[in-house]
Simulated assay, not measured.
Amino acid sequence: MNVHPMHPFLARATSVAADVAAAVPAGHPLDAPTPCTDFDTRALVNHWVLYTSHGLEHRARRAELPQELIERDFTADAEWRSAYAAQLDRAVAAWAEPAAWEGDVDLGGSPVPAVGIARMLILELLLHGWDVARATGGEIEVDEELASVALEIVEENAELYRQYAGFAETVALPDDASTWDRALAASGRDPHWKA
């Protein structure tokens, strides 16, 4: 079975996200601020878990997300971290099917190539993973190769995302900034943000 060349990056991004989730302290206040000014910690974690694990699998299978999932407060389950990791594994398995990468995915009336959707979800896993880590006092480990892929995807989509307020303006960085910091900054995130 020929797995798409982006699949290993998707799998690595889910592994990074699972590690971030596992490190979120049990007692962290869910109304605490995050780098995403529209979201407190509860809203951010729920958005991240919904779209990067359940949404990731549903996109591969060309299925609608059920309303029950959209409305669920994942953080209400003490075991949400391990449930998220298990759901990430199911999503990665769904994208291991070559058919998942073919054709388009319908995003509410606008078809987007499946490869583009997978690349956007790699970004969601990593960028919102950083948001969650920063908001909860954790760390995120993104290796150089994965950081390069993230930077490439950010730069490809930044103009479009800014039109829809998905990204803020680029944050200025020193010339010797790391690849990962450059990806964060290009998405409108300040790599030095602190809660």
Rank of each mutant, 00 (worst) to 15 (best):
D176E: 11
A147T: 09
R189N: 03
W180D: 10
H28W: 14
G109L: 03
A43C: 02
T41P: 00
R12T: 04
G188C: 04
R81F: 02
Y161C: 12
D38T: 06
V171H: 06
E159Q: 13
Y164W: 06
M6Y: 10
H54G: 13
A195Q: 08
G138N: 04
D190N: 15
Y51M: 12
Y164P: 00
S178W: 07
D77E: 13
F167S: 05
H7M: 03
P29E: 05
P35H: 04
L10G: 02
S82L: 15
W101F: 12
A177R: 06
G103I: 12
D131G: 09
D175R: 06
R42L: 08
I122A: 00
L88P: 00
V171L: 00
V154M: 08
H7D: 04
A60S: 12
A26V: 05
N2D: 14
E169I: 02
P29F: 00
W180S: 08
G137H: 11
L121V: 04
G188M: 03
V171I: 11
W95G: 15
I122G: 07
Q87N: 13
G27Q: 07
W95R: 14
L146C: 12
R61F: 01
A78N: 07
F74N: 12
D176R: 03
T170R: 15
P98T: 13
E68G: 12
A83W: 01
R134V: 05
L88S: 14
A23K: 07
R62I: 04
V20N: 03
P66L: 12
A93S: 11
S110M: 07
A60T: 07
F167H: 00
P33C: 01
V132M: 10
R119D: 03
A96S: 15
L125G: 14
G166C: 05
D143L: 09
A17T: 08
N2R: 06
G109P: 00
E156V: 04
Y51K: 10
R182E: 03
D38M: 09
I140Q: 15
V132T: 14
A23Y: 10
A177K: 09
K194P: 00
E141N: 12
S53R: 13
A26I: 00
A43H: 08
A91H: 06
W48Q: 12
G166E: 08
A60K: 10
G138T: 03
W95N: 15
L126M: 07
T179L: 04
G188R: 00
G27P: 01
S148N: 06
D190Y: 02
N46L: 11
D176Y: 02
E152A: 07
A168R: 11
P113G: 07
F9Q: 10
M6I: 08
H7W: 15
A183G: 12
D131W: 05
V154W: 02
A13V: 10
L10D: 05
P33E: 01
N46Y: 13
P33K: 01
V112S: 09
A99S: 12
A23W: 02
G108S: 01
W80S: 09
I122E: 05
A114Q: 01
I70R: 13
E156N: 04
D31Y: 01
I117M: 12
P113A: 13
P33H: 00
D106L: 11
A18V: 05
A100N: 00
T34D: 06
L56H: 11
A133D: 10
R12Q: 15
H58G: 08
